[in-house]
Design a protein around this nucleic acid. Sequence first.
DNA 1: CGTCGCATTGAACCGATTCAAATCCAGTGG
DNA 2: CCACTGGATTTGAATCGGTTCAATGCGACG
Lengths: 246, 246
Amino acid sequence: MNTAKIEFSECGDCPIRHRAVCSRCETDELEQLNKIKFYKSYPAGQTIAIRGEPLQNVASIVAGTATLTRSIEDGRTQMVGLLLPSDFIGRPGRDTLQYDVTAVSDVTLCCFQRKPFEKLLEDLPHVRERLLEMALDELDAARDWMLLLGRKTARERIASLLTLMVKRTIRPDGEVMGNSSRIELPITREAMANYLGLTIETVSRQLTKLKNDGIIGIEGKRAITIPDLGALLAETGDDEDGGMIV
Amino acid sequence: MNTAKIEFSECGDCPIRHRAVCSRCETDELEQLNKIKFYKSYPAGQTIAIRGEPLQNVASIVAGTATLTRSIEDGRTQMVGLLLPSDFIGRPGRDTLQYDVTAVSDVTLCCFQRKPFEKLLEDLPHVRERLLEMALDELDAARDWMLLLGRKTARERIASLLTLMVKRTIRPDGEVMGNSSRIELPITREAMANYLGLTIETVSRQLTKLKNDGIIGIEGKRAITIPDLGALLAETGDDEDGGMIV
DNA sequence: CGTCGCATTGAACCGATTCAAATCCAGTGG
DNA sequence: CCACTGGATTTGAATCGGTTCAATGCGACG
């Protein structure tokens, strides 16, 4: 069932140590979190949480990719967040989640029971501080996405998403993960469509158009190449360095 | 110039005392904020802050309505937030704002210089706590709006906005402000269009269609009546009590 | 009474969706 | 090694919802 194996258990070895909600913690605060943490894994495709259900735990994503989606009965679905390692799931002070959370690749979570976590929060100023910062960053990202959903053309949306993916391969310390001119898409066409507020057909068509225009190359179904990042950026509809804070 | 007059100066008399960033403060914390606060007013239509400019102050809206917008050079504009009394402008830890802030009615702000405020924040746990809560609420609202922008039809968007306006006239304590079956629209058609990711023409057309279908009544340009709130809710595309957390 | 700024209405157009069919590809079993 | 299968993806053609452009209506205000 669980394919994402945990090869660590000490916070010091944790791959998201420097970015997650615990990033500012010193050894004593870390130790307090460490005492109540536990790991959980989900295979690709599995539901992690359903909107409206009481939420027992909060968690940080340690490995893998998950999505946050909102949908209505008639099947229309909008992705409202793409969760990557270090992102936080759940919110203190509310006992139900507003969105569906789904693992799109094998996912490993670092979980805390919500109640103890909330209680602990009072004693951990660095966690609170980081949580606020992360919430505000997500708010900025959500608002940028609102511009995309409300005003951008299909082509601009695709270009924006690809740009986002590229930027996500660049670590905050500037270190480039792998060749940035070639990116693996961690999500299906359907997930892309749900993220962009489009249909899969439109996603497919725009990808091939961008390919035919020489902006990108397509390698199989899950990878693209970008010969000229500037050319792709010019297609996003954003002003030069505008928005797209990752 | 300034038409919104301040008729108070003590925090105890402040109309947003129970909802704003200071809502959890006891007298001593309140006194600390009180020492560094100052009021500022802007007439309707005036720009409060421009994207990218260094931000000297943070502030709470005391009275009036302001908008948060994001736009691209070619003129496309998306509203990403509607700021009502008690809402907070600016974010600690970042010195530029990502969005344009505009007063749509006469606005009065309760301002703090950003740096002193950030410093003070370390000693005011209740402000931090409330700030986090408000940020998370805004994040939920932004994500609900993403569903609207990505997947809803024009008619559903209009109905959703009107529903939002109605809910905003209901105070958190359950007290209804005025007759909820009649609402004043605090914003122009253009602002509505920018909020909904539509054109003003479409907004206008859908409003008249809703009128012709008997869902709403239109009184002049800035007020509508809602004979049957349930009928309006049914047009939003949301599941019964779904989403729309205000 | 004229004018200026919104708002409404109309008609043509267009980008994205819808529905349908073809293609690609990984995995499976002969 | 190859044929088969099922799921994802691509491609095509028709349609539709919302936009665009243009004209008209409506109040407020000088």
